[in-house]
Nucleic acid binder design. Structure first.
Lengths: 188, 188
DNA sequence: TTTTCACCTGACATAAATGACAATTATTCC
DNA sequence: GGAATAATTGTCATTTATGTCAGGTGAAAA
């Protein structure tokens, strides 16, 4: 379900700090790709064309437009386990950040807006279910998939699914299995 | 969509009392971050980059640029205590958000970039000293003041000051005392 | 539907870019 | 301390992209 975002000249203008008149001139001169609506001739700019334009001109690309997000947040307090997950995902080409406690998990979640989160339900001082609920209740993380990786009981894992987890992976797990689940979720 | 203010070289020039020619030179030499428009190569400077530049060079930051942030983050797990602090600060005109655990504290800290944080050192599942260290180690929170409000031992409070707390307030406290300390820190 | 709002166009005003040179300020060396 | 040197900033003139305004119309919201 790839939603194709388009911008009006006014929106594009705000992103680069100019007036929409200027954006229209860029379009007229062929620097920025756009198409016209049949009515008044309103311009519409596809988000990916706009991002390409920004990159071409070394202009800053706003985070909410660049969705080539390969960032994965690993919430896991056991260092060896975190390192193992990280290794597998890094090798597959993802950007990986690890949060070993709730506070850091919160800061990284807000900063990185990861496309996927692996979540250990049982961590000292942080309730995994609560993290899950938070992610599902906040619009800005609607795109983020959550893969629960935990040694919880089957009941606990079941509950996680009900709370909005996209998939579960019981510990201990197989590396290939982990990667398969991650790729499948991200491909969705 | 991020509503972000940007400046032209001329505007930036007026703010620091130089000509725009000079501002361009700062940009060319890499001292001031900016990007160029595709047309004539006009420069645009993001307001936060400009403010960072001003601070870096100990130049005065004009009031209309220094985001007049009145947001206070209260990190406190006891509901009555949190409510009490909130009430006092709200009445004084601040925007107040409460985080009752580490995870929420992390998300709110990153999102709100509060001008002041009140921090309870003793909370279940989160070490206040760690939060303090985090805030002090991350540049984007350099402007945030931290007021430790805690029933800690004198030694613990002393340690907090060493870790970068701007002030401390032992529990139980007087409302006026709280407000006085907050106002003093923010006025700094 | 009606109303509001955002966008389009064209003409004009504004202000930013550039390059060269002058003026000012800081630094170095004796 | 004072002079020579270097570095930074200001000034000027020209070019032109960008901003602004007004009048109009479709698009979207209520």
């Amino acid at each position: 379900m790839t939603e194709l975002r388009v911008l009006t000249t006014g929106e594009a203008a705000k992103y680069c700090g100019v007036t929409f008149r200027t954006v229209i001139r860029w379009i007229e001169r062929g620097r920025l790709k756009a198409y016209k609506l049949p009515g008044r001739g309103d311009h519409r700019i596809r988000a990916d064309d706009f991002v390409a334009f920004l990159r071409e001109n070394q202009m800053p690309v706003p985070g909410d437009l660049a969705d080539d997000n390969r960032m994965i947040l690993v919430i896991e307090d056991q260092p060896e386990m975190a390192a193992a997950i990280r290794r597998v995902l890094k090798r597959a080409g993802y950007d990986v950040e690890v949060a070993a406690d709730g506070f850091v998990a919160g800061t990284l979640l807000s900063q990185l807006k990861p496309c996927l989160i692996t979540l250990d339900l049982k961590m000292p001082g942080i309730d995994g279910h609560q993290v899950l609920t938070y992610v599902r209740e906040h619009e800005e993380h609607a795109q983020s998939k959550v893969l629960v990786i935990s040694a919880e009981t089957p009941e606990g894992l079941e509950r996680a699914l009900q709370n909005g987890a996209n998939d579960i992976l019981p510990k201990p797990f197989d590396n290939n299995e982990l990667l398969a689940k991650v790729e499948r979720l991200i491909a969705e």
